[in-house]
């Protein structure tokens, strides 16, 4: 196709082979398109090398102590991000539990004939709009709506079940639970959308076979359809986790930014992304190197989770085709 075959030119015909100008334009255009692709690759490589390169001084100075230390004090030149790593993982896991439950229920609800198509479209739009709201607006809403709303419940839990480590402290404003709740809302659309794709990819025949054997609606869903779509749903959860680990603003506004490791859901905590958001704008050169180190670690965590998610999705897609 690149070299159109040459038509013998008859002078009285309007047919003509492409002029050399047309061929030149074609060649230039294709080169430009290739350049566009190369820009993407260069961008990803530059991202990794730039952040990695700027982190090297920090790595040389602080080494592994940076990851295991739990004090962040600029004046004493002590930098440790263990509490931030803990907070990142802990908040993301809680968000994944809540967001995963609601996201998968929503996906089942929308794909398994519970609703007339019009009503399903309404719920689908709601989920899409949830994804469209900027995270800083969720943060604002979290401060002034979620925290006051859950405070009575958290107080009751602390007074009644304070001996369970999860409820070991009171909620004094920002804390892990409100942050994780808002995070759950933010990852719900991702999980719902990807799981919906997985569930709709299950062949109708499989479903009909299950119903034909006399299963109830839910037996068919739980024992046939969900297992058939399980790889895709798992991929959805991993992608949701990836989003939760990297989410910044809502957490910076809600989690309380305190460097402590605690099992309690109500105590303030910190995350890597929030640490970057809060300290970067006012950092001096010394702090910039360690923040770059923290950024590198955040990048390694999120990239590996996301790559795992994409690989699982690719695997699920291949399974469907067979």
């Amino acid at each position: 196709m690149n070299k159109p075959f040459v038509v013998p030119v008859k002078l009285d015909s309007i047919c003509q082979p492409p002029s050399s100008m047309v061929l030149l334009v074609d060649r230039a255009f294709r080169a430009l398109a290739r350049l566009g692709v190369i820009v993407i690759l260069v961008l990803l490589a530059a991202l990794v090398f730039e952040i990695g390169g700027k982190a090297i001084p920090g790595i040389q100075k602080y080494g592994l102590d940076f990851i295991t230390g739990n004090v962040w004090d600029v004046n004493q030149h002590k930098f440790g991000i263990l509490p931030a790593i803990w907070g990142t993982l802990y908040s993301a896991l809680i968000a994944l539990l809540i967001g995963g439950f609601f996201g998968i229920s929503m996906a089942i609800f929308l794909t398994q004939d519970f609703l007339p198509p019009r009503l399903a479209a309404v719920f689908r739009t709601i989920v899409e709009l949830l994804a469209a709201i900027p995270s800083v607006v969720y943060g604002l809403w979290g401060i002034y709506v979620v925290i006051p709303a859950i405070r009575p419940l958290t107080d009751w839990l602390h007074h009644s079940f304070g001996w369970i480590p999860f409820f070991g402290t009171t909620l004094s404003g920002p804390g892990l639970l409100p942050a994780a709740l808002v995070l759950a809302i933010m990852i719900l659309p991702t999980i719902a959308a990807v799981s919906q794709d997985a569930l709709s990819a299950v062949p109708l025949k499989t479903k009909q076979a299950a119903h034909g054997m006399g299963t109830t609606h839910w037996e068919a869903i739980l024992q046939v359809i969900v297992p058939a779509a399980s790889t895709g749903i798992f991929g959805a959860l991993v992608l949701g986790l990836g989003r939760a680990l990297g989410e910044t603003m809502a957490l910076a506004m809600l989690i309380g930014n305190s460097n402590q490791i605690s099992l309690s859901l109500f105590s303030p905590a910190n995350t890597l992304a929030a640490l970057l958001a809060l300290n970067f704008p006012e950092a001096g050169p010394n702090e910039i190197e360690v923040l770059m180190y923290a950024a590198l670690i955040l990048m390694l965590i999120t990239l590996s989770v996301n790559i795992a998610g994409s690989l699982i999705m690719a695997y699920a897609k291949r399974g469907n085709k067979k």
Partner: peptide, 19 residues
């Protein structure tokens, strides 16, 4: 690469642009 970039935490785009 493009799929990996969609999952990039937005704060890291900021760190990259800063650098």
């Amino acid at each position: 690469a493009a799929k990996t970039l969609t999952g990039l935490p937005s704060i890291l785009a900021g760190v990259f642009a800063y650098a």
